[in-house]
Design a protein around this nucleic acid. Structure first.
Lengths: 245, 245
DNA sequence: TAATGAAAGTGTACTTGTTACACTTTTTTT
DNA sequence: AAAAAAAGTGTAACAAGTACACTTTCATTA
């Protein structure tokens, strides 16, 4: 295995995180200081991404890059888009960053993009050399490269995915309450649901299994925990061909 | 613009075609004959694809490759997947084909894939040097490279797309009858619908506009033609957040 | 220890959408 | 003029979606 980076191919990961309140995404800060004045020449954010190695598989690269930047491991990643941003070559910040990190700013780069959805609370991020963390999706503006468009695209893909297969299937906390599940749908679609109607709806999802366990230490009536049953889901999923619109 | 092919990046187009009876896909025959014996060393099919040029944009490349092979032009293409097939390197047929067409069979290739859906009848294919044509999707087996998987993936993406926005929006014949539209949904999802219920459903789609024009020369009651109104659709489409499953 | 605050949990009436189902109409062909 | 072929149309029963308010159960605090 060589460690030579491929000049034209990169991967980007859009890692969404749910904290039971809002939808977040992992961003990495790009900071570049003038060695003389100490002034910050670049200071903004990007998604977790980097070039792949010349002999590395795409998904392996995505997992490696994500792990390098965040310490996250064993994350389910879903490929959703491959971007090629001509504008990327035009931003002076991006050009400067590329040359300072050993890449050629003149090279065209295509980026194969993956997304995931995690529970923030259960996935602590290990920060190494670069500043990295969860940021509320609703506050994100002006990412480096073409990452703002990639993020928008990722959110749309997440919405499509969620309405075609049960969220959390690959991606959710071990156990959760129905209010938490409702909140998750609400933040992903940016709407509000009626509690009783929501529960009526999920009651039909036989792969949501109620546990005998309840919340503890909350200063209100403790909620029942549920888990997803992958097994039941696989049985259930037959066809869902409600060609809506 | 150089004409040097990028060794690691290709594009593939999955062009679906509806002929009012079944779903078809454009395939290209790969034939390679032994120069001495004349025996066919390779004889199978692939999707329309090729390597991109080093300084060519992905979507431009997809359109160029498609045009080169089929003569089709001004086709709406939707990117749906980027494949990287390690197995590709292992098929002797594929290796032979690559070396005979000026590529290096040792190089890893990632392929950015696009699909489209056309009306076969309105889109005649110009065959140039290679044998190319419409083939019923249900008969397709054993394509070259990893194209069988790409085709399966494309069909799934088409299904997802169709149930999230009206088919034909970018992709359908100018005018069509309701029976033709029903047949289209039936072949894409491989199911049958009840005629009256189907019509009740599409009656709600305000962007399907009935014309005063009818079929001619058919030996039965002539059907009314409809068109899609993109304008009405854009107004209608608000949000469709029926997080089914 | 009683009162308060906070979220969990529960049912019903109304409206809307989905399903199953069969005959008449309009055209061409023979 | 009759036959063949697909278009076009309505209704009743059932399922799903919507709007809406009170009781329960825990921790906290007075």
């Amino acid at each position: 295995m060589t460690t030579r980076l491929h000049p034209n191919i990169s991967v980007d990961c859009v890692i969404f995180g749910f904290d039971f309140e809002k939808l977040n995404v992992i961003l990495v800060e790009r900071v570049l200081k003038d060695p003389v004045t100490g002034e910050e020449i670049i200071s903004d954010f990007t998604l977790t991404g980097n070039h792949i190695y010349v002999d590395e598989h795409l998904e392996d690269a995505a997992k490696r890059v994500l792990n390098d930047l965040t310490g996250l491991d064993h994350i389910y990643l879903e490929q959703f888009y491959t971007s090629e941003d001509p504008a990327r070559l035009k931003s002076p910040k991006d050009q400067l960053w590329l040359s300072k990190t050993g890449k050629n700013p003149e090279e065209r780069v295509i980026s194969v993009c993956y997304f995931s959805l995690l529970n923030c609370k259960e996935t602590p991020i290990r920060k190494k050399d670069r500043k990295v963390g969860w940021y509320p999706v609703s506050n994100v503006t002006n990412l480096g490269f073409d990452h703002s468009q990639i993020l928008a695209h990722a959110l749309h893909s997440l919405q499509i995915k969620i309405q075609n297969e049960p969220i959390g299937y690959e991606m959710l906390p071990q156990k959760f309450t129905l209010s938490q599940l409702q909140k998750l749908y609400e933040v992903v679609f940016n709407v509000e649901f009626d509690k009783r109607n929501f529960r009526k709806k999920v009651a039909k999802m036989k792969y949501l299994i109620p546990l005998d366990e309840k919340q503890k230490g909350v200063s209100h009536k403790p909620a029942r925990y549920y888990i997803f049953s992958r097994e039941v889901y696989e049985k259930t999923k037959t066809d869902m061909l409600n060609f809506s619109v």
